[in-house]
Design a protein around this nucleic acid. Structure first.
Length: 452
RNA sequence: GUGGAUGUAGCUCAGUUGGUUAGAGCGUCGGAUUGUGGUUCCGAAGGUCGCGGGUUCGAGCCCCGUCUUCCACCCCA
């Protein structure tokens, strides 16, 4: 055999069965998005590197897939650049496009560029693949889909509420038990301020984000290694060990953060959001989790993360409020809040819990089986008539052996087969066979239609 | 980017301290059944054992390199 074909590391093919399952997820999510008034947009797979670079931190820049310039991209280079072996510098010369890393930054670009065409507040959703040159791992791919919903141009906390309601509704429909973890960057900033390490806020949040994984002690070690004083770490301890209901946690925090204006603002935001959720009777458990930080540092207010309760996997949805994302593209004062459903991880969760609905859609309802060219020509108008009625019908396109045609129907789980031969043609009928019961009966076109 | 495991038929996997012609199940194709599938029985096709080098009389098995996939770290959906 010739060399085996393969696909790039971290990418996947999807079979018809897998696509049916994935579409079930996408359609469920889309339905809920639309229910809340969000409209779909798409942006190109590739963006200018100037749009992408510097938006995700140094790590993110490294994980960008870059696209080589077209044409003779080496011709303009001097020997110095070539011999310098400086990847970063050289990359700037030979690549000016990259694959999108997420949907949020391209969306920000979209808003700035199309501001004349959008009415604010702008509620959009976007379901497209993104690419990261990460090393693949369990639940991590180099190409994966994100389903983003964002609303920009509104500071109202009602938007946060709606996003929580969307999460609530999507996972109810998918029958996945989840917990929504929620936190607020303002509270985290307040904490950093109170312990006197305001400028180290990023280091602190990255460290406490790992609380779940590595535990209190290691978190403290990591914070200490970032050059934060022992005294500050001491002050941090009661906050890291907060317990009780959401309201109780907030009350304890109020005492600690009383002198931090920004911290108190965050607390009051959280109180409002919790109150909204209570009024709207959100079913999903919502938990204030101060150890939730989320790496992306453009978040400025509420941050969310959704975890599946019955499966061990990373977060399946995440997002938050970012006050000035469009600022880097020269459009200030536009606040946004959004979340992203990780379709591929949801897919893994559904697989593990086997939660797909029985009725798989998009399948053929009837197959026409025939024995020769005359029979094929006889059957074609029947197929057409059934299709016109909205019945998924197909015809086995060549006069193969009957066994083979029946096996084909069986493999595709086609519930009905119409057999066409000499006798059927003479009577202007077909032999309609129910593949489940095995019963069959000479039927007219009308009788066939009535079977569905 | 760092560390660990892995790779044998289309798929899932056996393969003894290194020893002759590398096996099974599933799937595919053909037949039993010339117009009837899902069950059964019979048969066939299909492998440069990931790739490259080395050790050896002899390598699927041992050694080195490389790639793939998986796992952990980093980071993240």
């Amino acid at each position: 055999m010739a060399q085996k074909p393969s696909i790039p590391k971290g990418t996947r093919d999807f079979t018809p069965q897998e696509m049916a399952n994935r579409n079930y997820i996408f359609n469920t999510i889309k339905d809920v998005f639309r229910l809340y008034g969000f409209q779909q947009i798409e942006t190109p797979a590739m963006e200018n590197l100037s749009t992408l670079m510097g938006k995700y931190g140094d790590e993110g820049d490294k994980l960008l897939f870059k696209i080589l310039n077209s044409g003779d991209f080496m011709s303009g280079l001097g020997d110095e650049e070539l011999l310098g072996r400086n990847s970063v510098k050289l990359t700037n010369k030979i690549s000016e496009k990259g694959l999108r890393y997420d949907l949020t930054v391209p969306f920000a670009r979209f808003v700035v560029q199309n501001r004349d065409k959008i009415a604010f507040p702008f509620k959009r959703y976007q379901i497209q693949p993104v690419w990261r040159a990460d090393r693949p791992q369990k639940g991590r791919y180099r190409e994966f889909y994100q389903c983003d919903v964002d609303v920009v141009g509104s500071d109202s906390l009602l938007n946060e509420l709606e996003l929580i309601q969307i999460v609530d509704e999507v996972y109810r429909r998918l029958k996945i038990n989840v917990v929504v973890k929620i936190n607020n960057r303002k509270i985290l900033s307040g904490i950093a301020e109170i312990i006197g390490e305001a400028e180290k806020i990023t280091d602190i949040t990255v460290a406490i984000d790992k609380m779940d994984k590595i535990g209190l002690e290691k978190v403290n070690e990591e914070i200490a290694s970032k050059g934060i004083s022992q005294e500050a770490i001491e002050k941090l301890q009661p906050i890291l060990k907060l317990t009780g209901t959401n309201a109780e946690k907030l009350n304890q925090l109020k005492a600690v953060l009383a002198d931090s204006e920004i911290g108190m603002k965050g607390i009051s935001e959280m109180e409002t959001i919790f109150a909204f959720c209570e009024t709207m009777k959100v079913q999903t458990q919502i938990e204030l989790d101060l150890t939730l930080a989320r790496g992306l540092n453009y978040y400025t207010g509420a941050i969310f993360e959704v975890k599946a309760l019955d499966v061990q996997i990373g977060s399946i949805t995440g997002g938050g409020r970012y006050d000035n994302l469009t600022g880097v593209f020269g459009m200030d004062g536009v606040s946004g809040v959004g979340i992203s459903f990780g379709a591929d991880r949801i897919y893994d969760v559904l697989n593990q819990l086997n939660l797909y609905p029985e009725t798989s859609v998009e399948q053929t309802q009837i197959l026409f089986v025939s024995f020769g060219d005359r029979e094929l020509m006889y059957a074609l108008p029947w197929v057409n008539a059934l299709r016109a009625k909205g019945i998924n019908a197909e015809i086995y396109p060549e006069p193969a052996k009957m066994k083979k045609q029946m096996t084909y129907a069986d493999n595709k789980r086609i519930p009905y087969v119409a057999i066409v031969g000499e006798t059927e043609m003479n009577e202007q009928k077909v032999m309609l066979k129910d593949m489940k019961t095995g019963e069959q009966k000479l039927s007219t076109l009308e009788e066939v239609m009535n079977a569905f």
